[in-house]
Design a protein around this nucleic acid. Structure first.
Lengths: 229, 229
DNA sequence: TAAATTAAAGGTTATTTTTACCTTTAATAC
DNA sequence: GTATTAAAGGTAAAAATAACCTTTAATTTA
């Protein structure tokens, strides 16, 4: 490939991932203690440098697979952090992604081996660089976005009950919801498929399992948006 | 500054701006014919390479000032385009911004001198690289975002009438709105200040001018969001 | 084994918001 | 001075939301 732009400066580009999970009670983030200087041993998001042979989405997926073993994760870039001194080591721009994963599908062995930990979003420790800002922004974004897009399902197992789904939204929005009204609303959107199977052991009566119907959602979405909580 | 990451690859980073304006009738984009190869003389967004001494926001503002003369423009990064071959010249990642400007405040002399043109969004010509994709995404984003944030005011003069504001939203959403209901809704948000002055020459009766009250909006926004169209 | 307990699931009603119009008003044009 | 037009304000039906109540299906306890 020719050098069309040889006079222009080049930059180090990092990809950092805010990885969200939900353990049936609380929203959690996957964090790790940084293994190299600067700020070695401080809590950090998962990140790496963009390589020449990959685009940003590929790099983010590569990072996610490294730490969780998962291959097809919901991932979205949301902001670039480009202040000149944001990394005390050297100038590095960071492209921040957020990821929504089903904790129980992830490779806990792998996560543990690398020393990563799932931490409640209201117990996040001090983070390196501008990572706290990344987390805050990612939280704002999923809070807003999950009102209009079916993000929630990315955090739950394939089969989930309506009370489980409600707990998730309560964790995201940080507020209690009326269970009867929540049920009505979510069912009125016609994107859930009821299974003939009940959850055991949690409540006496047991709640029916449901599945998110991606196909139905796509149809609705194409015929003018619909999903709203 | 030490070289902490000397083994990592560096990348060319462009900043491209989707610049929106509104001429009282139609949403418009500022476009220009590219002055250098590859794809010289093809229509393009305004862009430049990120320099070492600036962050992304600074670079975007620099580009905007160059083409419009305006200094404090509404600007927001919205997506990175990073496919390895997106630029046929050399690998360049692009950080795309959208800008909302008041056309009448811009330096038309400057715009003209550089050969830039305001083009209706439904008459956009073929664009270089992935710029069409950038425009499409920016449009989607302002369409969604202007429902929940007072973006519209960035595109109108300081003083505007409610029918003017309505026309703008009709251009953004690409649909007619009921004028009585639109008026009620926008006034119910209590972020407009009515001026004791009427628009002349457009309609017989003349419509009162209003101003957007940034202060009131901020107060409302902080006490839980409010703005919604 | 029957009664008590609990959360799921469904139902009801009042309130608020939205939508679709209709009426009045203030200016200009004829 | 009357007709015309769009601005501005008003109204009523319909839809959506929110608050709360009842029934149901299971488990636990007596």
């Amino acid at each position: 490939m020719a050098n069309f732009y040889s006079e222009e400066p080049k930059h180090l580009l990092a990809v950092d991932c805010v990885i969200f999970g939900f353990d049936r009670e609380q929203l959690k983030l996957l964090l790790v203690k940084r293994v190299r200087p600067p700020e070695k041993d401080q809590w950090s998001l998962m990140g790496d440098f963009l390589q020449d042979n990959e685009n940003l989405e590929f790099a983010a997926q590569r990072i996610l697979t490294k730490w969780t073993g998962l291959e097809h994760v919901f991932l979205e870039q949301f902001h670039n952090f480009s202040d000149i001194n944001r990394d005390p080591g050297e100038r590095v721009l960071s492209v921040a992604f957020y990821a929504l994963i089903k904790i129980e599908d992830s490779d806990k062995e792998l996560t543990k081996r690398y020393g990563a930990e799932w931490i409640d979003i209201d117990k996040i420790p001090k983070l390196i660089f501008d990572h706290a800002q990344m987390v805050e922004m990612a939280l704002e974004i999923i809070k807003h976005k999950s009102r209009f897009e079916p993000l929630g399902f990315e955090l739950l197992p394939e089969k989930f009950t309506i009370p489980q789904l409600q707990k998730l939204y309560e964790a995201i929005f940080q507020q209690k919801l009326d269970s009867a009204n929540f049920r009505k609303k979510i069912l009125s959107m016609k994107v859930l498929k009821k299974l003939n199977e009940k959850e055991k052991g949690v409540s006496k009566r047991g709640a029916f399992y449901f599945q998110f119907d991606q196909g139905k959602y796509k149809k609705l979405h194409e015929s003018g948006l619909l999903f709203e909580i």
